[in-house]
């Protein structure tokens, strides 16, 4: 189908490669270095092979953080994807409502992540927070600093509040790209709104939804600042996600070796899962093409 096969297109890609290589490959090589060496003093390092990897893989706290992370990302995706699509479908198609909806949806996305944590910390506090005080007034004891379940509810609520608009915005951009003739055809055929959604809107949104799903998976899997500010990983370790644990090892304890090994393993897990998601969605998409 493509008769434009042309390696000159490489020239168009070179600027991107230069920029990304500078900020990705050099630091990544440094991290690999750390993970294979025991740095005793500046300029004095001992090659230790896979020692750090073994140590990290047998760390039970890392196992716990990993399962916690999976549970968190799964819950977040299960709530945000359908909710985001629903919001995009409900959004107005013409008039001033469009601008209003877009600006409103974009608001949470533009708040720095540490501020997000701060907003929710204020919002759910039993003494000065609207949410915490309201729940407690209803007779339900709620304290995200003491009860693990409450901490989880708070972190999930915050994540859904923060990121569902991203899914909605992308889905909406995808919906707007569907030419009007498709809807007219569906109308002539007397298709129900569910059928219009399933056979026209959903397949046409596949590209943007893939982006949304991958972005949401990656970012929820790498989440750091918001729960760190909100719960500090507690109570106990119940909301210590992978990044929080990683920063603890690599930055606070300055264990560069285990930190490097940890982050490479972490990186590979995200990579592998994203690759699987990407492939599956591409397959599904081809099957739907009529």
């Amino acid at each position: 189908m493509n008769k434009w096969g042309d390696n000159k297109a490489w020239f168009l890609v070179i600027p991107v490669l230069v920029f990304v290589a500078f900020s990705a490959i050099i630091p990544l090589m440094t991290v690999i270095n750390y993970s294979l060496q025991d740095i005793l003093a500046p300029g004095k390092a001992l090659f230790v092979g896979t020692e750090w990897y073994k140590k990290v893989l047998h760390d039970y706290r890392l196992h716990d953080a990993l399962w916690r992370q999976f549970l968190f990302s799964a819950l977040v995706l299960l709530i945000e994807m359908p909710l985001g699509i629903l919001i995009a479908l409900a959004m107005p198609k013409k008039g001033w409502g469009i601008s209003f909806s877009l600006v409103t949806l974009a608001l949470p996305l533009l708040i720095p992540w540490n501020t997000i944590g701060t907003i929710w910390m204020i919002f759910v506090r039993p003494d000065i927070g609207l949410f915490g005080a309201a729940i407690n007034n209803l007779g339900v004891a709620f304290d995200h600093t003491r009860r693990p379940l409450d901490a989880w509810v708070t972190v999930i609520l915050m994540e859904v509040w923060h990121w569902t608009p991203l899914v909605a915005l992308l889905a909406y951009a995808g919906l707007r790209a569907i030419p009007e003739v498709y809807y007219q055809a569906a109308k002539i055929d007397g298709a129900s709104s569910w059928k219009t959604f399933y056979y026209i809107q959903l397949p046409k949104m596949r590209g943007v939804l893939t982006i949304a799903l991958l972005l949401r998976f990656m970012d929820s899997f790498l989440i750091y600042a918001e729960p760190f500010v909100l719960t500090g990983g507690g109570p106990g370790n119940t909301t210590t996600f992978l990044s929080i644990y990683l920063v603890k090892i690599a930055v606070l304890q300055m264990d560069l070796g285990p930190g490097g090994a940890f982050s490479l393993i972490y990186f590979l897990i995200v990579l592998l899962l994203s690759f699987i998601f990407y492939q599956v969605l591409q397959r599904v998409g081809k099957g739907e093409k009529v």
Partner: peptide, 20 residues
């Protein structure tokens, strides 16, 4: 190359701090 580019969004930024 396309997928490699994307992988750079997946790297945990925490340990990139010191190399950066």
């Amino acid at each position: 190359i396309f997928f490699w580019l994307l992988t750079n969004r997946m790297a945990p930024s925490a340990v990139f701090l010191i190399p950066f």
